[in-house]
Simulated assay, not measured.
Amino acid sequence: MKAAVFHKIGDISVDTVEDPRIEHPEDIIVKVTSTAICGSDLHIYDGFFPQLKDQVMGHEFMGIIEDAGSGVSKLKRGDRVVVPFPIACGHCYFCDHQLPVHCENSNKEHYGPQGDMTSGKGGGLFGYTDLYGAYAGGQAEYARVPFANFGPRVVPDNLTDEQALFLTDIFPTGWSAIDWAQLKGGETVAIFGAGPVGLMAQKAAWIQGAGRVIAIDPVQYRLDMAKNTNGVEIINSSESDPIQAIYDLTQGRGADVCVDAVGMEADRSFLEK
């Protein structure tokens, strides 16, 4: 099959690689119908997350189940599914407490509470280096999805791929930031970063009852997208002090909730990095 393969920093190419196969009874093989490129892929491409071996990229994908292991009971061949970025078993301590990103069973080699540079990581992630389980990603014709009874979700026929694809990563990420803030209704929410995840956090803030939503970013075209798409107030942090601007917009009170939706390649000087 064809797949986007990371070789070394700055080097990703479309190569012919071996087709995935069932390795565990709860595996499925998905024929990918839609996939996306995430800003987090740049962390690998730019070397922020080290990867010494070739790896198929991509953690935002969906498709049709081509094959299923003998232990798969909740899905079947032919089902159209969207696949979440985190890989989780569904029955460990953290999965039982609705924290699947911390799954204890999907990243055996590097799992742990320490959070070090090369060990003590969380659960497994598709296409996201050996540190997170060495799972091949979904920027490919086919992908193996483990723990299929827990992670993938069947997509209703009335939804297109474009309508469902963001459920892999980008929308749940923005939604979770607002969900964890536990809005009561009417709050002023300041969201730093107006990239794709920031846009989703803005949408989620409105849905969950925010009274005002303010987007802060140093790049004007992103702010224009946020304003036009989500009807938010905007602050260009390259033109004014964003903190003072928030005070000015809120009669000196400040925001009730602040969300950090900025990636690793933030607008910082060399010394700050």
Results as ranks from 00 to 15, higher is better:
Met62Trp: 01
Leu131Pro: 05
Asp79Gln: 04
Leu131Asn: 11
Tyr128Lys: 04
Gly124Lys: 10
Pro84Trp: 03
Asp130Phe: 15
Arg80His: 01
Pro86Tyr: 05
Gly78Glu: 12
Tyr132Leu: 13
Gln114Trp: 15
Gly112Lys: 02
His110Lys: 13
Ile87Pro: 07
Cys89Met: 09
Phe85Leu: 11
Gly90Trp: 09
His91Cys: 10
Gly78Ile: 10
His97Gln: 12
Asp130Thr: 10
Gly78Val: 10
Gly90His: 08
Ser106Cys: 11
Glu109Phe: 08
Gly137Lys: 07
Val82Asn: 01
Gly133Thr: 10
Gln139His: 07
Val82Lys: 04
Ile65Gly: 02
Glu66Val: 02
Lys76Ser: 11
Cys95Asp: 03
Glu60Pro: 07
Phe94Asn: 02
Cys103Leu: 11
Val101Met: 13
Pro100Ser: 04
Ile65Lys: 00
Gly124Arg: 07
Arg77His: 02
Gly78Leu: 09
Asn107Ile: 09
Gln98Trp: 09
Arg80Tyr: 00
Glu109Asn: 13
Leu131Asp: 10
Phe61Ser: 01
Gly58Ala: 08
Lys76Pro: 03
Lys76Glu: 14
Leu125Thr: 02
Val81Gln: 05
His110Met: 11
Ser106Asp: 11
Ser73Arg: 14
Arg80Ile: 01
Gln98Pro: 00
Asp79Glu: 05
His97Leu: 14
His91Val: 12
Met62Val: 07
Thr118Val: 07
Glu104Val: 04
Thr118Leu: 15
Gly133Pro: 10
Ser106Leu: 14
His59Gly: 03
Asp96Ser: 11
Asp116Leu: 15
Gly112Thr: 01
Lys76Gly: 09
Asp96Lys: 12
Gly90Lys: 06
Gly71Thr: 09
Lys76Asn: 04
Gln114Thr: 15
Pro86Trp: 05
Asn105Gly: 03
Lys121Gln: 15
Val101Pro: 00
Ile64Met: 01
Lys74Glu: 15
Leu131Phe: 05
Gly78Trp: 08
Phe94Trp: 06
Gly115Ala: 09
Gly124Met: 14
Gly120Ala: 12
Leu125Gly: 02
Arg77Lys: 15
Asn107Val: 08
Glu109Pro: 01
Ser70Cys: 03
Glu104Trp: 08
Tyr128His: 15
Gly90Ala: 10
Gly71Glu: 13
Glu104Leu: 10
Asp67Glu: 15
Asp116Gln: 13
Gly58Leu: 13
Thr118Glu: 14
Tyr135Ile: 06
Gly123Asn: 12
